[in-house]
Amino acid sequence: MSYCSAINQMQPGDRKTLHKNYHDNQYGFPIHDDNELFGRLILEINQAGLSWELILKKEEAFRKAYHNFNIKNIANYTEADRKRLLADAGIIRNRLKINAAIENAKTILVLQKQFGSFEKWLEFNHPKTKEEWIKVFKKTFRFTGGEIVNEFLMSIGFLPGAHSSDCEVHKKVLKAKPMWLKQNSIL
């Protein structure tokens, strides 16, 4: 069942509102801010083994704990910051995921120097199949398995599949010109 269908079948209430807001306003839309791109990667990494609903509920706590996903700040985190994050009940307190965020921030700083931005690095690597993207991410970043990479790239418009073609939001995503729509894209 697609995310679009699952939301339509949810009972009205906070849960449906939470998912619908993400589905209608963020999922599949291009992101052009490096900190927001990195934030989405942090959220996807933290979702591994857990529900996306839990991550959506904790998004504001993640923003606060990780300095609004500021790449430069996170790249400079110290051992004291690691301890602070491990003690923060508002986020996922997993040492491997926290370490991945810090190390991935350092990697993105290098990519920004080489390519101008994290987004431009993604564009430089486009188009790729899902399998090719997974190899690039595993070589470049920490804690980026197949499902994390797939969901991250779908959620930011680099891979198709975020929405069913009959979903009203799909039309809005198309108007935002996601990368997967670009000519020569591999589908």
Rank of each mutant, 00 (worst) to 15 (best):
M1F: 15
I7C: 10
N8L: 08
M10I: 11
G13E: 11
D14G: 05
K16Q: 15
T17G: 00
Y22Q: 11
D24N: 14
Y27N: 12
G28I: 00
I31F: 03
H32C: 10
H32Q: 04
N35C: 15
E36A: 11
E36Y: 13
F38V: 05
G39Y: 10
G39H: 10
R40P: 06
L41I: 07
L41C: 12
L41H: 12
E44D: 14
E44Y: 00
E44M: 03
N46C: 05
L50W: 08
S51M: 11
W52D: 06
W52A: 02
L54Q: 10
L54S: 08
L56W: 05
L56P: 08
F62A: 03
Y66I: 12
N68K: 15
N68F: 13
F69E: 07
N70W: 02
I71S: 03
N73T: 15
I74T: 02
A75L: 00
A75N: 00
T78G: 01
A80P: 00
R84H: 12
L85P: 13
L85I: 02
L86E: 13
A87M: 14
A89E: 15
N94P: 06
A100G: 11
A100N: 15
A105F: 07
K106T: 09
T107A: 05
I108S: 02
V110S: 01
V110K: 09
L111F: 10
L111T: 07
Q112F: 06
G116R: 07
G116C: 08
K120C: 06
W121L: 11
F124A: 08
N125C: 10
H126S: 14
P127H: 05
K128Y: 03
K128A: 06
K128S: 04
E131L: 08
E132S: 04
V136Y: 13
V136F: 09
K138F: 09
K139N: 14
T144W: 00
G145T: 01
G145H: 09
G146M: 04
E147Y: 11
V149S: 11
N150S: 15
L153A: 12
S155I: 02
S155A: 12
P160W: 01
P160A: 04
G161D: 09
C167N: 10
V169Q: 14
K171E: 07
K172R: 11
K172I: 05
K175Y: 11
P178Q: 05
